[in-house]
Every structure is written in structure tokens, then in C-alpha cells.
């Protein structure tokens, strides 16, 4: 029984796939062809990718550095906090969790304006990479906290800790021996999310960056505005090559953490 209306979902799915995939393929091809307007017949080349590296290597490296620094900071801030929130699920804890999740609701532009107005006059800080880092941490921190919190909430952390306490482990010891190892799936999923989001972050970064500190997406915006299509495409291709494996790893890690939850 194949009714025509049963083909609608398939058609919608395929159309959506085409809508998402076609421009990606276009940009990959454009970044690899000698001349996009003459098409593939003009030949394939890595020349544009090479030019991108020449022009934007510092942006790419800065983004990687920022992502790693962001990861370190979110780990230090987020993991202990998620533990404390998991163990004291009181009203104050909920308010704090809500509050740090605000950057998910409030647009990045507004947050960047807020940061600029408060810290813009401290030029040493304003012009350093740490200023951009603050923005990235602000935006990615809720993902780390939630990811760890979800895993900690799913295991019987209280009893495990009581078990360790009866064996002589103090609070700090229990955190290291029991909490962190059992939260690892959540930490891993959170870490990959943080790195992925940090590398792609634009809304805050565009406002916080300085001409000497351009991240990868800022460089992308720059290339879209001022470079020929092939270079812009090649740069986008470089971005895809970085982000897609991270995205795949992130989804894998999240699915793995999810399995613990169920």
C-alpha cells in the first residue's frame, strides 16, 4: 500500500538535505577549482587553500589556541561547579545554574556590548586575547556545566560518595577519585561541545576582537567581504575540515553520555 501522501515525508527530507548540502558542496568545489565561474573544467587546485594559509594562518592558530584555553577554563570552572550543583540541588543552586545559562538566551551581541562597556577602557585587557576568551567561556560554560550535571544527576553520586567517605576519603579526595572518573562521559561530551562552539563562535567575537586578533570565523567574515569567491570558499573548506570531525566526535560523545543517562 504505497499511497502518494506517504512519499511527502521522504520528499521533504530529501529537499531539506539538498538545501543544506548543495551550498556546502558548492563551497568545497569552489575552494578547489582553478576558476569557479568556468567550472570544474578549469581544473582542480590547492592553490586557494595555500593562499588561505598564507593570509589567515594566524587566525586559524588563534582559534585553536582560544578553543583549548576556553576548554581549560570551562573545565576548571564548570566541573567542580556542576558537582556542587548536583550535590546541593537547592533553590540557590538552581538560580545560579539559570544565571550562568543566560548567555544561551541573551544574544551574543548584547553580551559583547555589556563586556565592552564595562571592560573596554582597560586597554591592556581589552586588546588581549584573554578578552575574547572571556566571551567564549561565557558562551560555552553552560554547555559544560549542563553536560557534566546531566551525567552526575543520573548516577547515585550521594551513595557512591558515602561509600568512599566510610572508607576514609575526605571531600577533595572523593572529588578526584569518585566524582571526576564517573563524570568522564559528561566531561568528554562537554569538552568536545566547548571546543566545537569556541572554534565557530562569531557573534561575541566580532565585537570583542581587535584588528590584531582575528579568530577563524572573524577571518571568514573578512574573506567573504573582501576576497575572491575561490579564496572565501577555500577558507570555508578549511573550516569544514576542522569543524566536521569535531562535530562527529561531539555527537558520538553526547550519545555515549546519553546512554549512561538511560
Amino acid at each position: 500500500m504505497r499511497h502518494p501522501t506517504r512519499l511527502i515525508p521522504l520528499a521533504v527530507t530529501l529537499l531539506a538535505c539538498a538545501f543544506l548540502l548543495v551550498p556546502i558542496v558548492q563551497s568545497v568545489l569552489a575552494g578547489l577549482t582553478v576558476n569557479y565561474f568556468r567550472g570544474l573544467s578549469s581544473g582542480l587546485t590547492l592553490k586557494w587553500v595555500g593562499e588561505v594559509w598564507g593570509l589567515y594562518a594566524s587566525s586559524i592558530l588563534l582559534s585553536i589556541w582560544l578553543a583549548l584555553a576556553c576548554l581549560a577554563v570551562t573545565l576548571v570552572l564548570g566541573v567542580p561547579a556542576a558537582y556542587a550543583l548536583a550535590r546541593r540541588p537547592g533553590r540557590a543552586a538552581r538560580v545560579l545554574e539559570e544565571f550562568i545559562s543566560l548567555p544561551l538566551a541573551v544574544p551574543g551581541l548584547a553580551l559583547a556590548l555589556a563586556l565592552l562597556q564595562l571592560y573596554g577602557s582597560y586597554s591592556g585587557f581589552r586588546t588581549s586575547w584573554a578578552f575574547i576568551l572571556v566571551g567564549h567561556v561565557l558562551y560555552t560554560l553552560p554547555f559544560m556545566v549542563r553536560s557534566v550535571l546531566a551525567v552526575l544527576a543520573a548516577i547515585d553520586l550521594k551513595t557512591l560518595e558515602e561509600g568512599a567517605a566510610t572508607l576514609g576519603a575526605g571531600p577533595a579526595r572523593r572529588f578526584v577519585d569518585i566524582v571526576v572518573p564517573n563524570a568522564l562521559p559528561g566531561i568528554l561530551a562537554g569538552a568536545l561541545t566547548v571546543v566545537t562552539l569556541s572554534i565557530g563562535e562569531f557573534n561575541l567575537t566580532w565585537m570583542l576582537h581587535t584588528p590584531y586578533l582575528k579568530t577563524l570565523p572573524v577571518g571568514l567574515a573578512d574573506s567573504y567581504a573582501s576576497m575572491r569567491l575561490e579564496i572565501a570558499s577555500a577558507y570555508t573548506l578549511v573550516f569544514f575540515v576542522m569543524i566536521v570531525p569535531l562535530l562527529v566526535a561531539m555527537q558520538w560523545a553526547s550519545a555515549r553520555a546519553q546512554r549512561i543517562l538511560s
Partner: peptide, 12 residues
Amino acid sequence: GMVFQSYALFPN
């Protein structure tokens, strides 16, 4: 020394 109802063995 304590034996818990759920045993509280450390899964890690």
C-alpha cells in the same frame, strides 16, 4: 566499614 543497600561499588 559500611556495606550499603545498593553496595555503592565504584563503577570506575
